[in-house]
Amino acid sequence: MPIQVTCPKCLKRFQVSDKFAGKTGPCPACKNQIRVPELDEQVVIHAPDDGAPKTRSGESVLKPLKRSETDVTRKGLLITAGAILAAIGIAIGLRVTGGVSVVILAIGALAVAPPLVWAGYTFVRDSELAPYVGAELRNRVLIGSVLFSALWLLYAFVPAYVADFESPSDMSFMWFGIIFSAMLIIGALISVGTFELEFASGLAHVGLYLIATLLLALLSGAVLATGTPVP
Rank of each mutant, 00 (worst) to 15 (best):
K19E: 13
Q42N: 06
V61W: 06
G58E: 03
P229M: 15
S172C: 08
G76M: 05
L219I: 13
L116K: 02
L85M: 10
A160Y: 03
A150K: 03
R35C: 07
C7Y: 06
F148C: 14
T226M: 06
A212E: 00
T97N: 12
K66E: 14
V16D: 09
I178K: 02
F176T: 08
I79N: 00
S145H: 00
I3P: 00
A188R: 06
V141Q: 02
Q42T: 11
E59F: 13
A225R: 03
L39G: 01
G134K: 01
V223Q: 15
A163D: 12
Q42A: 11
L94K: 04
V133K: 12
L129Y: 08
A200T: 13
R140Q: 14
T122D: 04
K9M: 11
A222D: 06
I143Q: 05
G51E: 01
D18V: 10
S68M: 06
L129K: 12
L137E: 08
A222M: 10
A52Q: 15
L78I: 14
P28L: 05
V192S: 04
V112F: 02
A113E: 00
W175E: 12
L39N: 06
L142M: 11
S60P: 09
F20A: 09
T97H: 06
L105H: 07
C27Y: 10
Y161V: 15
L151Y: 01
S101F: 10
L154P: 04
H46T: 07
A163R: 12
W175M: 13
C10S: 10
G89E: 00
A47E: 14
A113H: 05
S191C: 01
L62S: 07
G207M: 02
S172W: 15
K63W: 14
I3H: 08
E69Y: 12
R95V: 04
L39E: 08
V206K: 01
G120Y: 06
P53C: 05
L208S: 05
L216K: 06
S181F: 10
A47I: 03
D50A: 09
G51P: 09
A81T: 12
M183F: 01
S101T: 14
D164N: 15
G51Q: 03
P159N: 07
L215K: 03
T55F: 03
A21I: 07
G134E: 02
A150C: 10
I3F: 11
T97Y: 06
I79Y: 02
M174W: 09
A150L: 13
I45P: 00
D49L: 10
